[in-house]
């Protein structure tokens, strides 16, 4: 997650949030804001984001049907959760979507981003078309494809094998992968485009003098130089795809059967449809733990702290 900010400001990465200190004691002290300037933001964030995160863990030890007060039931929800084969299936589906989503979106976004980084006019024009999905909300995209995949009137009706794509388990999963790729690839393409434009041109000129082919340049210069962006983009992609909800609700509604239930969707159904808020909170807790663990693992093993290392010796 640090990457986001690093990439965002382009300068913040690697810097510690060191508080500036007065350098010379002889000078009159500069006016500095008191910590109260933080209070409104801290209050908002604390009450509506951090506190709910703690509360969800507490609620996972209660039984609550949405009215009245939650009553403590000890570890009942957790015992049930570990014996619930449907939850296991749901976690499996979620992980499958994460892995397949990453494996399809990353190469496409990377290639498109590198291509779009070129300064040619036709690339600029086509790129602005490629960015169009960014203008639509997740709900709009999911509903649009839900209609396009309509087996009788939609586009799918024209393409034989895809006619009933939302009607079979693998088909519906494929549809979710396609729709989420359609939606999110432009965003990651944008990240790769920005990063590819920052690769020092001397590297390509040197390679050209050595007689390197286009593919060799891509393989030995572009790819290694984009390593940090791959990490940033993958983190965003993986954590994002763990929490697909709207696309599921509006595109497949979890169906056919429960074939496309994901962890957040299962939590929503348990809570807001079956009114088992305590049990749903246990599922939510699992989601938090998995999302945090995934972020930490990526940060730990990707050499995140050495973000700037590709520019060493330049």
């Amino acid at each position: 997650m640090v990457a986001t900010v690093g990439a965002a400001t382009g300068k913040g990465a690697g810097r510690t949030p060191a508080r500036p200190r007065p350098r010379e004691s002889a000078r009159p002290a500069t006016s500095r804001p008191s910590s109260w300037y933080l209070a409104p933001a801290a209050l908002f964030f604390g009450f509506f984001a951090a506190f709910p995160l703690v509360l969800v863990v507490y609620l996972s030890f209660t039984s609550w049907e949405g009215i009245g007060d939650p009553t403590l039931v000890g570890v009942d929800n957790w015992v049930r959760l570990f014996g619930d084969s449907r939850v296991l299936d749901v976690i499996g589906t979620t992980l499958l979507l994460v892995v397949l989503g990453w494996a399809t979106q990353t190469p496409i976004a990377l290639l498109l981003g590198v291509w779009a980084a070129g300064q040619q006019r036709n690339r600029a024009i086509l790129s602005s078309i490629f960015f169009l999905p960014l203008l639509l909300s997740t709900a709009a995209i999911a509903l649009m494809f839900n209609r396009l995949f309509d087996p009788y009137f939609g586009l799918a009706a024209e393409f034989g094998p895809f006619q009933n794509i939302l009607g079979t388990g693998p088909g519906a999963l494929g549809a979710i992968l396609f729709v989420t790729g359609w939606q999110f690839i432009p965003f990651h393409m944008l990240l790769y485009q920005a990063a590819a434009r920052n690769i020092p041109k001397v590297l390509y000129q040197a390679a050209l003098m050595d007689g390197a082919s286009g593919f060799q340049q891509f393989r030995h210069i572009t790819l290694p130089q984009l390593k940090n962006t791959v990490i940033t983009s993958s983190t965003i992609m993986i954590v994002g795809s763990l929490t697909y909800f709207e696309t599921i609700l509006l595109l497949t509604n979890g169906g056919p059967g429960t074939a496309t239930y994901t962890v957040p969707f299962e939590m929503y159904i348990r809570g807001f449809r079956s009114f088992e808020f305590g049990y749903a909170s246990a599922i939510a807790t699992v989601l938090v733990v998995v999302a945090t663990a995934v972020s930490l693992v990526i940060v730990k093993f990707s050499g995140f702290t050495k973000m700037r290392s590709t520019l060493e010796g330049m």
């Binding site: 910590s35 506190f51 709910p52 995160l53 949405g66 939590m267």
Partner: peptide, 26 residues
């Protein structure tokens, strides 16, 4: 302020989906 910075950094990773039940209660 240093502490707040770190908290906001961690805050980026909170999945909003996981907080909907407590938020509904609050």
């Amino acid at each position: 302020s240093g502490f707040a910075f770190r908290i906001f950094l961690l805050g980026l990773a909170i999945p909003a989906q996981a907080t909907i039940i407590p938020l509904y209660l609050i």
